[in-house]
Amino acid sequence: MGDAPANIFAAVSAPASRTSELSLFVLAVTGAIFFVVFGLTIVAVVRFRRRDTDDGREPPQVYGSNQLETAWTVVPVLIVLVLALTTARVIQSIQGVTRPANAIDVIVIGHQWWWELRYPGLGIVTANELHVPVSDPLAPTPTWLTLLSADVAHSFWVPRLAGKTDLIPNRVNHMWIAPTAPGVYVGQCAEYCGTQHAKMLLRVYVHPRDEFERWAQAQRQGDPQVPSELDAVVAGRRVFESNACINCHSVAGTVGNGRYGPDLTHLMSRATLAAGAAPLSPETLRAWIRDPNGIKPGAHMPAMKLTEQQIDQLVQFLLTLH
């Protein structure tokens, strides 16, 4: 179990680690209850089972006992009291936090079946792979997530960073993370949202501060690529702009400004394709454009019925979108 990258007890961010501490406490309390009550059951069964030597007479009949009933009411009441108070404090410490001034804002919008990620303060739009700075516990720079949905209910869950919060249409939810260790943390949509709920994966990259700044800088530039002179790329761009791609996708510097699908401006800065359905590579890109349903059955992107040559050109173009 050491190689479980989404273990809720391997917390690296405040909400998750506070939760994990509470969880261990609750586990200990319930574990103790279990051993006592289960033990009593076993003792009762073993000690009072009918022996072969039984005389066939009925045992003494006992109808109840007020002292016992009182005892096993009062003790659980006390346990419940302790559990309730401890839990309430942790709820407070997670939900009751106000947004500090230096927090990074990200708007997460759930779509069937991908994540739109917008950084309003930084002017960045991306998809499926969230990049955030590491947060020093002494001078926290948490990331503040505003959760929305474009269609049905989804749920944002990266177990090592925080518990879930749902993304619900016509409702604004919030959550925050303050990861303390750089790395890549995986998670996925946790509310059933239709056919491809299983392939609505999520990656969070936690960077040291300067690395995050560099990433943000690169993402911010409107039209990053030196417009390529390569014929295939120019042709690919034409294919992109003259097909329905532009109705659903945005690429800065082209006429494409659709918002139905993921923003492709910095497509190649991502490691995975279509919310983790496949690793991102020229081959998977080609397969995806040829037939999205082959990789992700039910995905809301149609097969565009392009020729193989057009697909080649298109992929050449997409590969330039760093």
């Binding site: 909400p15 279990f34 839990t87 518990g163 879930k164 946790a190 509310e191």
Partner: peptide, 22 residues
């Protein structure tokens, strides 16, 4: 007994945020 105790874990709200829908 076990089911009830896991129910108690699910009722501890922050624990539930991790466990729900899993």
């Amino acid at each position: 007994l076990i089911a009830g105790l896991t129910g108690i874990m699910l009722a501890a709200v922050p624990f539930n945020w991790q466990l729900t829908d899993s």
